[in-house]
């Protein structure tokens, strides 16, 4: 998977916008999001709650709940334009070409259906040509692949009889069983203990290794991103504010928001810092995005630069550096950074 940069594009999102209209006011929760995921790549999407990362994910799946609505943009999976599909065609694609791994498998599994038949539902829906008699073997096979211990016993159990880690493995099995082009992992480890978290992350890496599945990994946790992702997209206030290879972004963040996120992580080893940096203030109201930079109110760089007018008057573009990194800040890089240091 070293030649990711030259691999073909699996998912291409352009200018995606999602609006929620409630009681007369319109909130643009996702505002012009565009990115790509290439074959075999793990892309992290990081942001606080309300940054638009979950809504983006739902929009990719065509599952934005009422009263939300995709108002603009294009989502292309391989060479299929999802916006042009009927609801039925979209449903046929979900779970087969594009699968979701939920954040809390314990709540996402049907509590009244045994594990085996629940895994089998996906087969029945997407592979009707597969003879019924062959399903049990397929189910056991996939459960073995995700490392579920004693799968012959687990298939007869109900979700609540499994541990959290086992539930998550079952959810991963359901996601990968039909060999999707893209796996969307929605904070798949937040509900788990730390040791189990590591196991599930390893499982995702194994899945990518074995079948070359691309993974869009949604999280609020920079550490996890650093552990398993190839590239990262940082979201803030409905937009991507920075993107690039994980190593570059984590070692030299271009956007002040990314820097603030990284500063909020307690460092490993060495002396504990006097205090962790937190980001003051709260994200702006999605019903009335500010005119200039959406992070301006909370931005330390702006403060250090003496609050230039440009930050609040002109919305920054997501500028590319030509080497695969993008950042949405007027003062990114060179001169401004030098001033601060």
């Amino acid at each position: 998977m070293n030649d990711v940069k030259t691999a073909e594009t699996v998912l291409r999102v352009r200018d995606l916008a999602v609006e929620f209209s409630l009681r007369g006011s319109v909130a643009r929760a996702v505002d012009g999001v565009g990115f790509e995921v290439r074959a075999g790549e793990i892309v992290g999407m990081v942001g606080e709650s309300g940054s638009g990362k979950s809504v983006t994910m739902l929009a990719l799946l065509g599952l934005v709940p009422r009263p939300g609505r995709v108002v603009a943009g294009s989502v292309r999976l391989r060479d299929i334009e999802l916006g042009a599909l009927s609801l039925r065609e979209l449903a046929r694609l979900r779970g087969r070409q594009m699968a979701l791994i939920p954040s809390d498998a314990g709540a996402a599994l049907n509590p009244v259906t045994r594990i085996g038949s629940q895994v089998g539902e996906g087969l029945a829906a997407h592979l009707p040509e597969l003879p019924r008699a062959e399903r049990p073997a397929r189910i056991l096979d996939i459960l073995k692949r995700v490392g579920l211990p004693r799968p012959e016993q687990q298939v007869r159990r109900y979700p609540h009889e499994l541990s959290g880690g086992m539930q998550q493995r079952v959810a991963v099995a359901m996601g990968v069983q039909l060999g999707p082009d893209l796996l969307i992992a929605d904070e798949p480890t937040t509900a788990l203990d730390v040791t189990i978290q590591a196991q599930i992350l390893q499982l995702l890496l194994d899945v990518r290794e074995q079948s070359g599945t691309s993974i869009l990994f949604i999280t609020h946790d920079m550490t996890t991103v650093a552990e398993i992702c190839d590239r990262v997209l940082v979201m803030y206030a409905g937009q991507i504010v920075e993107s690039g290879p994980v190593v570059d972004v984590c070692t030299a963040p271009a956007h002040p928001y990314t820097r603030a996120l990284l500063d909020a992580i307690p460092p490993l080893g060495g002396d504990p810092p006097e205090r962790l940096t937190t980001i003051p203030g709260a994200p702006p109201d999605p019903r009335a995005w500010p005119a200039g930079c959406r992070f301006a109110e909370r931005c330390r760089l702006r403060e250090q630069l003496g609050n230039p007018d440009k930050c609040t008057s002109l919305a920054p573009e997501l500028a590319s550096d030509g080497a695969g990194r993008r950042s949405r800040c007027h003062f990114t890089g060179s001169a401004a950074e030098a001033v601060v240091r």
Partner: peptide, 9 residues
């Protein structure tokens, strides 16, 4: 830009 309406509700 193509306008994608993924949800028809």
């Amino acid at each position: 830009t193509q306008v994608a309406v993924l949800v028809t509700e």
